[in-house]
Simulated assay, not measured.
Amino acid sequence: MSSVPNIARPAAQPPQELVPSRYAVKVGDIDVLVISDGVMPIPAVIMAANAAPTDLSDWLGYMYMPPDTFDWPLNVMVVRSGEQTILIDAGLGIQFPGFPRTGQLPQRLASAGIDLASITDVVITHMHMDHVGGLLVEGVKEGLRPDVRIHVNAAEVAFWEAPDFTHTAMPPAVPPVLRSTAQSFANEYRDRIQTFDESYEVAPGVVARRTGGHTPGHSVVALTSRGERLTFAGDAVFPVGFDHPEWSNGFEHDPEEAARVRLSLFREMAESGSLMVATHLPFPSVGRVAISGDAFRWVPVIWDF
């Protein structure tokens, strides 16, 4: 992973998939690889729990999306800064048989030529199952180096000891799975987790910063090098949020704060013109945010082959 071309297509390894599942970006001296963990279908209403059904239906039609189910992309990132290789989030994992199109991270890391043992640090934006589940896949912990550092916000770790789902709007079966997965992750990796409060520089130019909102310790990761910038926004941003930043996602534990975080992040991205990647934007999820009247507009980058 010493250069962007090698990240994008390892030598002597022909493409294994018809549809690309990794995309390389250079941010100054920092190498970035966006990797798709797959796609997870969810009820469309979860994207806009506080929206009128007719308004959501109109938006889905406007976006040429089916009325009932939304295919939720799952993106993670691998970052090389200096001597450190950082995995940002870990996807859903394969311990959830109800989602056969997800849990692709282990084999997609391998196909990109990234050995688990080369990862020095992991940043978890928050402890929902589609961000930590990949670390619970059989063989993953054994493949990681014993001294790997897993960075999670302190408020996030504390929250999942006794999580509050009062303000969420999830299907009834989801909260118990979220709770058990987060607690399994905390127990399994307790000796490797390093907590931080408001922000922490994981590697040169790689800073994890708490935003809260989606979960109490939800964090974004900002990459800065040679005047260039890219922010991994985690679950602060969803596809519907550009047109309707006030619509709350059913997985948000504090919907009002999540909306404030979303608006603040959009304004920050629009003013700076920096790149953004988010977990649930369509792969490769690399683009910029522009202001469009009272709302915002997502501007995907032109793929660089």
Rank of each mutant, 00 (worst) to 15 (best):
Y23I: 11
W59H: 05
D71Y: 10
M77R: 10
G28S: 11
P73F: 15
G61N: 12
A24I: 15
D55C: 13
V34C: 02
M40R: 05
D31G: 12
N75E: 09
G28H: 12
V39P: 02
S36P: 03
A52L: 13
M77Y: 05
K26M: 10
T54N: 06
I30M: 04
L60P: 04
A24H: 05
I30Y: 04
W72E: 12
Y64R: 09
M63P: 06
A51W: 02
V32E: 06
A52R: 04
P73S: 14
G28A: 14
D37V: 15
D29C: 09
G38H: 06
V25S: 06
G61Y: 01
F70W: 10
F70Q: 04
P73L: 15
V76G: 02
V76H: 02
V78Y: 09
A44C: 10
A44D: 08
D31P: 01
V27M: 07
T54D: 14
V19M: 12
Y64V: 15
M47F: 00
Y62R: 07
W72D: 06
V45K: 01
A48N: 00
P73D: 15
A24G: 12
L60W: 04
V34S: 06
L74P: 03
N75I: 15
Y62A: 11
W59Q: 02
P73H: 12
D68K: 05
N50L: 01
M63W: 04
P66Y: 03
V32Q: 05
Y23A: 07
D68I: 01
V32H: 05
A49N: 06
A51R: 02
L56E: 00
R22C: 13
V39Q: 09
P20F: 00
K26H: 08
A52D: 09
A49K: 08
V34Y: 03
D31E: 13
T54E: 14
P20S: 01
M77E: 10
G38D: 08
W72Y: 14
S21W: 07
W72R: 13
G38A: 11
L56C: 08
M65H: 10
L33A: 10
Y62I: 04
A51G: 04
P53F: 12
M65P: 00
D71N: 14
G38N: 09
V19K: 11
V76Y: 00
W59I: 02
P53K: 14
G61R: 11
V32D: 05
Y23R: 01
N50V: 00
L18H: 09
P43Q: 09
V78S: 11
S57M: 09
M77D: 09
P20L: 01
